[in-house]
Amino acid sequence: MFGQVLATEFVKLHRSKATGATLAVLAMMPPSVALFMWIVREPGRAAELGLLGTKASLVGIEATWPAYFYMLTLIFGVGGMLLLAFIVAYLFGREYSDATAKNMLALPVGRHWFVVAKLLVAAAWWMALVAVVLVEALAIGLAMGLPGFSAELAATGIAHVLLAPAISFLLAPVVAWIAVLSRGEVAPIAFSLVMLALGNLFGRTGWAEWFPYSIVPLLIGVVADPVDSLPAGSYAVLAATFVAGVAATILQLRFADNAQ
């Protein structure tokens, strides 16, 4: 039965504008970074662009492959957290905004299977987005002829870029729980925005590695210099957050009132 549940969750995405919209948003990021790199590399022409050139040069980033990977990590880390929150909020919350939750929950299927299937669809959707946009980013970087490329750097850079979205996914079930608790899509997205702000705030304290929403900013260097590896405690916090989110979503669907 789980195979059928999973298949129907993919079918529900047919002709959905959300898939294209998320791809469009994320796919805009590498060209934006590339434009930034171009401005940094061409200060003369950047000056002709006025404020944009001034701001770009103020950041002090070099137009090199390591800097390019660093900025991609920032985008996949911070922007990705929000985009993934949107995906999860859409998959769970639309059942309420389209008023189809009542049809889904009175089917002869264990409600936990819907939670697992939707999270797997979110993971597949997210991985596909990341893969497509990473290939796009690499192609743009190569086309620009940025200096400092090597196979070793590429492997390390890609690993870093992929780690942030992977960690972001561990926070996704909490977003799912907020979506079913609030019976819609707005609250989980608002929750994610607030958590992102709190994550940055806590990230500047000594608790950064213990607060789940500070861990990605800590890893990618939003709140301090990027770290090469996270302490084991952070992984434990992320795993606990993931398990708690899945359990809360299942319990909400199983035991709470689920009228529209």
Binding site: K17, D98, A99, N103, A106, P108, R254, F255
Partner: peptide
């Protein structure tokens, strides 16, 4: 709570008629 097996023998229409609009 959460026991859904019996619904394989039940058809239902609750409140407004809804469906996935994109399908």
């Amino acid at each position: 709570p959460g026991e859904t097996n019996v619904f394989s023998r039940v058809g239902f229409l609750v409140e407004t008629a809804t469906a996935y609009p994109n399908l």
